[in-house]
Computed example of a mutant assay.
Amino acid sequence: MPVTQLESTIRTRLLESHRETLQSVIDAGHSVATAWPTDDVQESGAVTEPLERLLREQGLTADLLGMLQTGTAAINDTVQGRPIPAPPYLVITSRGPLCRGTLSDGRRLVVVLELFAVRRSPTRYRFRDPTPEELLSVSIR
């Protein structure tokens, strides 16, 4: 199966099976952004630190990592090793959560939940207010 078809299959399954988790992540991103004094911020820590704290407090890290198993099951594959909620398997970036796992053939499944847009010169972070469909990006590398 071509990579783009695998990515599409995984994305469809994640939207079907993890819609509640995706919406909870969007809600957490919204909570982070509403705490800012303006519509955007300059420091990535104003995104990553409160978002990571909220995701952990709400127990969403296990659900985010569970998306790797759901995604690989959709293509009859598995994640090699045992993902744990720490880099390199789950990291909270200035754009949002990123989950990564190694497939049985050595390629990487990368699931990105893009909550925040980044503008350069000067650097600014703004909440995108995405739908689950707009939030979710899946790639195999």
Rank of each mutant, 00 (worst) to 15 (best):
19 R>D: 15
67 M>R: 07
41 V>L: 08
134 E>H: 11
64 L>R: 04
81 G>N: 02
29 G>I: 04
79 V>E: 02
95 R>T: 14
44 S>Y: 15
70 T>D: 15
29 G>Y: 01
15 L>D: 09
107 R>G: 09
80 Q>I: 09
26 I>R: 07
56 R>W: 11
125 Y>L: 05
15 L>S: 08
21 T>P: 01
71 G>N: 09
66 G>F: 00
120 R>E: 10
101 G>Y: 15
96 G>D: 10
49 E>M: 07
102 T>M: 09
71 G>S: 09
115 L>I: 02
56 R>L: 09
70 T>I: 11
55 L>I: 06
110 V>H: 13
107 R>D: 13
27 D>S: 09
88 P>T: 11
109 L>N: 03
139 S>H: 12
69 Q>H: 04
62 A>T: 00
2 P>S: 14
103 L>D: 05
105 D>F: 02
9 T>Q: 13
92 I>W: 10
126 R>D: 07
42 Q>G: 11
32 V>S: 01
48 T>S: 00
20 E>Y: 02
53 R>C: 01
22 L>Q: 08
11 R>G: 07
131 T>H: 01
52 E>P: 00
80 Q>S: 11
30 H>N: 05
33 A>N: 04
72 T>W: 12
102 T>C: 06
41 V>W: 06
39 D>S: 14
73 A>C: 05
37 P>C: 12
112 V>T: 13
129 D>F: 01
46 A>M: 09
23 Q>G: 06
51 L>K: 00
105 D>A: 07
71 G>D: 05
59 G>V: 05
117 A>M: 00
31 S>E: 03
104 S>A: 12
124 R>T: 15
129 D>C: 00
56 R>N: 14
14 L>G: 08
81 G>W: 02
52 E>I: 01
63 D>W: 00
125 Y>I: 06
94 S>W: 00
86 A>G: 05
44 S>P: 01
133 E>L: 07
98 L>H: 01
78 T>W: 10
48 T>K: 03
32 V>H: 06
104 S>V: 06
43 E>F: 12
65 L>G: 03
133 E>S: 03
135 L>V: 04
44 S>W: 13
52 E>T: 05
54 L>I: 12
20 E>P: 00
135 L>R: 05
99 C>A: 03
94 S>T: 05
90 L>N: 03
46 A>K: 13
24 S>D: 00
84 I>P: 12
101 G>T: 04
61 T>S: 14
27 D>L: 10
85 P>L: 00
130 P>E: 01
132 P>L: 09
110 V>W: 11
44 S>T: 03
81 G>M: 04
114 E>R: 15
36 W>N: 14
129 D>Q: 09
139 S>F: 09
55 L>Y: 05
7 E>P: 06
17 S>K: 14
12 T>F: 05
82 R>Y: 09
72 T>P: 04
68 L>E: 08
39 D>F: 06
65 L>T: 04
17 S>F: 02
107 R>V: 11
60 L>F: 02
101 G>S: 08
24 S>V: 00
10 I>Q: 07
66 G>P: 09
138 V>N: 14
24 S>K: 03
140 I>R: 13
82 R>N: 07
124 R>M: 10
80 Q>L: 11
66 G>M: 02
52 E>Y: 09
44 S>G: 02
35 A>G: 15
43 E>I: 08
99 C>V: 03
38 T>A: 15
135 L>D: 05
51 L>V: 00
79 V>Y: 08
6 L>A: 07
7 E>C: 12
